[in-house]
Amino acid sequence: MEITLTHYLLLAMVVFLTGMVGFVVRRNAIVMLMCVELMLSSVNIVFAAYSRFHGNADGHVFVLMNFAVAAAEAAIGLAILVEIYRRRRTVNVDDLKALME
């Protein structure tokens, strides 16, 4: 079987939905951050596939930038989580209710 653009797009969609569902279902903040990374990775697949499809390099450049941003986001997210864990001894978002109405 030949691998076509459609297969890449389907793969990306599956990865994206996995991340999305995981983000909604899981309550552990670290797992939620991992799910966001999955969603960002699926975007990379789409960009890389289309970049090849259209025959220009724009999509590849975007993928590289996206790596850097995703890493920065994860770094800040984990730093905040460490701070929260120090005070609360939990990273479960259901326990974070100081700001609920």
Partner: peptide, 30 residues
């Protein structure tokens, strides 16, 4: 506690919404 909690919520929701936007942008590029 309130400030760090606000920050965590901001990171999580911000990252998800920008991921959704990126997915849209990648399809637009396509």
């Amino acid at each position: 506690l309130r400030s760090t909690e606000a920050s965590l919520k901001y990171v999580l929701f911000g990252a998800v919404s920008s991921a959704i936007m990126l997915y849209g942008l990648s399809l637009l590029y396509g």
